[in-house]
């Protein structure tokens, strides 16, 4: 098996499985046709064909196994061949390794920047300890209903010992006017 077909084999597992499926199915269908030709009703013919054939799933696995065992063997052969070729063409090998190194390096660099900026969650030591509390109406306890006053906040700040620290925030929309049409601007 050539290196190329070895690689394409890895990607076409699904196609291989489909191929085996089709092959076994064709076998059953031919048996059904012959059974019908021999005078069975179509239902009887199918039942007989499936009985003769046995467990389709188990057989699929056996056939796949016969393919896969040798695919692995030839994969090792391909790897050995590849290594020999690399030793033979030193220049190519060096360029290939450098290309890989640069590629991996650049990707890692970009990822670490993105990771720090976008992917990482809140810049807190223990984000799972962060809680928010509000005043709610009895009818809908899961939604904030009233603002705390500034005095309320000071009161909490002084007396509450349940939290390491407290902060207050509020959110309100303002109309921004000036040049062009006015926009709603949310402030927190």
């Amino acid at each position: 098996m050539s290196l190329l077909s070895g690689i394409s084999n890895l990607f076409s597992r699904a196609k291989l499985a489909q191929d085996i499926d089709d092959e076994l199915q064709a076998h059953i269908e031919m048996q059904v046709s012959d059974n019908i030709a021999a005078g069975m009703s179509s239902e009887e013919a199918r039942r007989d064909a499936l009985l003769k054939f046995g467990n389709v799933t188990a057989m699929k696995e056996k056939v796949t196994g016969a393919d896969a065992a040798l695919t692995l063997e030839s994969l090792f052969a391909d790897v050995r061949y590849g290594l020999r070729q690399l030793v033979r063409n030193r220049g190519f090998a060096v360029i290939a390794v450098m290309t890989l190194a640069l590629g991996i390096g650049a990707t890692t660099g970009i990822f670490s920047i993105l990771n720090a900026w976008i992917i990482q969650p809140l810049p807190l030591k223990d984000p799972q300890q962060l809680v928010i509390f509000w005043r709610a109406a009895a009818a809908s306890p899961n939604e904030p209903a009233y603002y705390f006053s500034w005095r309320d906040y000071l009161y909490f700040h002084e007396r509450s010992h349940a939290f390491q620290s407290l902060g207050a925030s509020f959110e309100r929309g303002y109309a921004l006017t000036g040049r062009g049409s006015p926009r709603v601007c949310t402030v927190g």
Partner: peptide, 16 residues
């Protein structure tokens, strides 16, 4: 010949 032996054998022989 049992189908259960035939098809694995065919695929093995093709690989060889």
């Amino acid at each position: 010949v049992e189908e259960g032996s035939l098809y694995p054998a065919l695929h093995r022989m093709e690989q060889k």
